Simulated scan of single mutants.
Amino acid sequence: MEKLSNKTNERARKIESIILQRLAEKTQTTIAIELGMSESKISRLKNDDIPVIAKLITCLGLKVVPDDSLEVSQAELKSIKTLAKKYLEIDEMI
Rank of each mutant, 00 (worst) to 15 (best):
61 G>W: 03
58 T>V: 14
42 I>E: 00
49 D>K: 15
69 S>W: 09
43 S>E: 01
36 G>M: 00
73 S>N: 06
53 I>M: 05
59 C>K: 14
42 I>K: 01
38 S>V: 04
45 L>D: 03
57 I>V: 15
58 T>Q: 10
84 A>Q: 09
49 D>P: 00
82 T>P: 07
85 K>Y: 06
66 P>E: 06
42 I>L: 07
91 D>K: 04
45 L>Q: 04
84 A>P: 00
41 K>I: 03
67 D>N: 15
62 L>I: 05
63 K>T: 13
54 A>P: 01
90 I>P: 02
49 D>Q: 11
43 S>C: 12
53 I>Q: 00
79 S>E: 11
91 D>I: 14
91 D>H: 06
83 L>A: 11
57 I>L: 09
47 N>F: 08
87 Y>A: 00
64 V>L: 02
60 L>Y: 08
75 A>L: 06
74 Q>I: 10
61 G>Y: 07
39 E>H: 02
35 L>M: 09
65 V>L: 12
48 D>F: 08
52 V>Y: 10
62 L>P: 06
69 S>G: 09
67 D>K: 15
40 S>G: 08
37 M>K: 02
76 E>L: 12
57 I>T: 10
44 R>Q: 05
69 S>M: 12
82 T>N: 14
50 I>K: 01
61 G>E: 02
43 S>L: 00
35 L>E: 05
57 I>Y: 01
40 S>M: 12
61 G>C: 04
35 L>V: 03
47 N>Q: 11
69 S>T: 11
60 L>Q: 07
55 K>H: 05
76 E>D: 14
41 K>D: 05
65 V>P: 03
44 R>V: 02
68 D>N: 04
49 D>F: 13
61 G>K: 01
84 A>S: 13
57 I>E: 00
64 V>D: 02
43 S>D: 09
91 D>T: 14
47 N>M: 09
80 I>T: 08
51 P>D: 10
69 S>C: 12
54 A>G: 02
79 S>K: 14
88 L>D: 10
70 L>F: 15
44 R>L: 14
81 K>W: 07
74 Q>C: 12
62 L>K: 12
78 K>A: 06
46 K>V: 13
46 K>R: 14
66 P>D: 11
77 L>A: 13
87 Y>M: 01
75 A>D: 09
66 P>G: 03
39 E>I: 01
61 G>V: 11
81 K>C: 09
91 D>W: 11
41 K>M: 00
37 M>L: 04
68 D>G: 01
41 K>V: 04
61 G>N: 08
71 E>F: 07
45 L>Y: 02
78 K>T: 15
88 L>R: 15
59 C>G: 08
89 E>T: 13
85 K>H: 14
71 E>Y: 10
64 V>G: 04
67 D>R: 09
39 E>D: 06
64 V>E: 02
44 R>H: 08
89 E>F: 06
81 K>Y: 06
39 E>N: 04
74 Q>K: 15
88 L>G: 05
